[in-house]
Design a protein around this nucleic acid. Sequence first.
DNA 1: ATTTAATTACGAATTATTTCGTAGATGTTT
DNA 2: AAACATCTACGAAATAATTCGTAATTAAAT
Lengths: 141, 141
Amino acid sequence: MSKAPPPKPTDSELEILHVLWQHGPATVRAINDHLSQRRQVEVGYTTTLKILQLMLEKALVRRDDADRSHVYRAAVREQETQGLLLDKFVDATFGGSALKLVMQALGSRQTSADELAQIRRLLNDIEIQNSTPNSDDNDHA
Amino acid sequence: MSKAPPPKPTDSELEILHVLWQHGPATVRAINDHLSQRRQVEVGYTTTLKILQLMLEKALVRRDDADRSHVYRAAVREQETQGLLLDKFVDATFGGSALKLVMQALGSRQTSADELAQIRRLLNDIEIQNSTPNSDDNDHA
DNA sequence: ATTTAATTACGAATTATTTCGTAGATGTTT
DNA sequence: AAACATCTACGAAATAATTCGTAATTAAAT
């Protein structure tokens, strides 16, 4: 009864999380540089700073303020966060049907043979698991 | 050249579109009743009305105002809209990789054998299309 | 015809998100 | 040490989305 789960990140917050997931802990300066590169318009330094401060309050990131330039790092895992966002998205857009989402994703989009093969492998794995009422199915970190 | 494409619907707008897609053209009253049922908290009538008026400006819906109670209907197709939202979502959350999205959707989720079979069928269809550089690939309504 | 009910239009409060300017502190350079 | 650069904190403007109240209109009921 406590330890509120971190909330759904906003678009800007997610963008920052991507940087942190990809590059590891970083200063505001470094994060801001990455963001500015990926965009048409530069992001103001204090904009990035402000969002990071809000993310800190929301416990989406942690920071090391030992040095003058604080170092931020992601406090939420990539897969978990993506799963959370995916759930919301499936509910809002596909009425909760993950199948519809997958059909749409594969159907109206260019998918390479390699990717298709990977998905087949995944399907095989899932069916094996399904047909094997294996002792305990943990694995949900 | 003109005819701006309708913009990405917001969450509330999407909720209303779901009602219209599912039940066809409807009055504000009818739409509001559906929304109120699907929620914990009732929606105010004028709230629904207001959103519909905004959706009309955005060309997400059309309306028939012949009678006093105007009748609204969706002006965007379900699949197209879902596809549009999916694109944005894949970009924002999975860095543009539809594969990652599918893996996440199938991996961290309970999927029935029947659904898996449907996905397999779809994969087969796609691979046939890919291996058949068929003249012109239309089929996108 | 009056009253009552339902409907539309519209302004505006509320909340969330994004953005940035400015002040103050701290370090660096000359 | 004085000037300069960099950093954090914070307030607040700008924008978007959601919500609802109120007034005006029109229809229905009495």
